[in-house]
Simulated assay, not measured.
Amino acid sequence: MNEYVIGVDLGTSAVKVSAMDRDGKIVAQQSYGYDLHQPYPGYSEQDPRDWLYETTIVIDRLILKELR
């Protein structure tokens, strides 16, 4: 079984996940977008539960689709 390090970039519009090997080479990447809520003019909000949910989804996708 190969060993990888997973990095997570939780950005404003999406979460991006990369898997790197021991040499630092990126071997797989996945991303998943989430909504930015604007309840009033000039206000922007995000639900932290979305961050957790989408991060879990993108890590699962990375492992199941890219690292098998």
Score class of each variant (00 low, 15 high):
G11W: 01
K25W: 07
I57T: 06
Y53H: 08
P39N: 11
I57K: 11
K65R: 10
D60M: 00
V5P: 00
G42H: 15
D35T: 10
S44G: 09
R49D: 14
V15L: 01
I59H: 12
A28K: 03
G42L: 08
D9N: 06
V15Y: 11
E45P: 04
D9P: 03
I63H: 06
M20F: 15
E54C: 08
Q46H: 13
V5T: 14
K65L: 01
A14K: 13
Y34W: 03
V5N: 02
V58F: 00
Y32V: 04
V27T: 05
Q38R: 14
Q46A: 14
Q29I: 02
L36V: 11
Y4A: 04
A28P: 02
Q29P: 00
S31K: 05
N2Y: 09
L36N: 08
I59G: 04
G11Q: 02
N2F: 13
S18Y: 11
Y53V: 10
A28N: 02
Q38K: 14
I6F: 01
D50W: 07
G42W: 14
D47Y: 09
L62S: 00
Y40V: 08
G33F: 01
Y43T: 05
T12S: 09
G24A: 09
Y43P: 00
V15K: 05
M1H: 07
E54Y: 05
H37L: 11
W51E: 07
I26T: 10
R68S: 10
K25M: 12
Y53W: 09
G7T: 10
D35F: 06
Q46E: 13
I57Y: 05
W51K: 08
G42S: 13
D23S: 14
R61A: 09
P41V: 12
T55D: 12
D9G: 02
E54G: 00
L64C: 12
M20P: 01
L67W: 01
R61C: 01
Y4F: 04
R68I: 02
V17M: 07
G11S: 06
K25P: 13
E3M: 02
Y40R: 12
A28F: 07
E3L: 07
T12R: 04
D23G: 07
G33P: 04
H37Y: 08
T55K: 05
L62Y: 04
